[in-house]
Amino acid sequence: MAKTVLTVDDSASIRQMVSFTLKSAGYEVVEAVDGMDGLEKAKGKSFNLVLTDQNMPRMDGLSLIKSLRGMPGYRTVPILMLTTESSDTMKSQGRAAGATGWLVKPFDPQKLIEVVKKVIG
Rank of each mutant, 00 (worst) to 15 (best):
S87M: 00
E114T: 07
K3R: 15
M71K: 06
K118I: 09
A32G: 13
I113Y: 06
G44E: 14
K91W: 00
G98R: 05
D9R: 11
S13V: 11
A25P: 01
T4H: 15
L112V: 03
G70S: 09
L64C: 10
G26E: 12
T21E: 05
V77G: 00
L82K: 08
V104H: 07
M1I: 15
V77A: 04
G61M: 02
K45W: 05
L103N: 05
L103H: 06
D10C: 08
Q54M: 14
G121D: 13
S19W: 02
T21M: 05
G94K: 02
V30E: 11
T7R: 02
R15H: 06
K91F: 02
F20V: 11
M90S: 09
Q16I: 04
L103E: 03
P57I: 12
S92Y: 01
S11K: 08
L49M: 04
T100S: 15
A99M: 00
V50W: 08
T4F: 07
D9A: 14
I113S: 13
D60C: 03
N48V: 10
T52M: 08
D88M: 14
S86T: 13
K45T: 13
L103C: 03
V30T: 14
S24P: 05
E114V: 03
Q93Y: 01
N55L: 09
D10P: 00
G70C: 10
N55H: 08
I113H: 08
R69T: 03
